[in-house]
Amino acid sequence: MSPFDEYLHTAIERARMEAHEDGSDAAEAHHLLLAVAGAPEPVAGPVLAAAGLDRAAVAEALHREYEASLAVVGVDLASFDLAPPVRTPLRSIRIGATLKQLLQRSFTTSRKKDLRPAHILLGLLQIEAGTVPRALAIAGVDRAALAADVRRAL
C-alpha cells in the first residue's frame, strides 16, 4: 500500500467510527470530513486550523446544516425528543452513497501515484452539492479559497 492508500484507509475507518457514534448505519462524506478535521495530517492540518475548522467546529456546522435544512420545510428539530439510536455495530457500517461517490470521483480518476493525504481534504472541498458544502458555508468557509490554500501547501 502507498502512503496515500494507507492514510485513506485510516481516514475511512475513522469515518466509519464517526458514523457508528452518531447512530448512522453508513459512513458518508460528512463523516469523512469529521474524521479529517479530527485527525488532520501535516499538510491539511494548518490549513484547517487557520480556517478554524477543528472537529468540534465541523460537528457544530453539520448540526446547524441539518436543523436549517429541516427548517426549510417547516420542521423544527428541537421539537423532537429523540433518544440516541441504538448503534449499528462498527463492523456493519457501510460506505454510504456520498462517500462512495467522493472516492470514485476524486481518488480513482487522477493519477494515483501523485495523490497525497491532503488530496482527501481537497476532494471534500470540491463536493459541489449536499451536506458537506452546505455545512462548510454555514461555518463561514470559502471552499475555493481553502482548496487553493491546500494546493499551495501540497
Partner: peptide, 30 residues
C-alpha cells in the same frame, strides 16, 4: 409554508427529512 424555491434547499430538506425519518424509524422499531 410554500415549497422551497431554491433547488439546493429543497433537495437538502429531502435529505434531512430522510435522515430524521431514519432516526425515528430506528427508535420506533427498537
Amino acid at each position: 409554508l410554500p415549497a422551497p424555491e431554491d433547488p439546493a434547499d429543497a433537495l437538502a430538506a429531502v435529505a434531512a427529512l430522510r435522515r430524521l425519518a431514519d432516526h425515528l424509524e430506528d427508535t420506533a422499531v427498537e
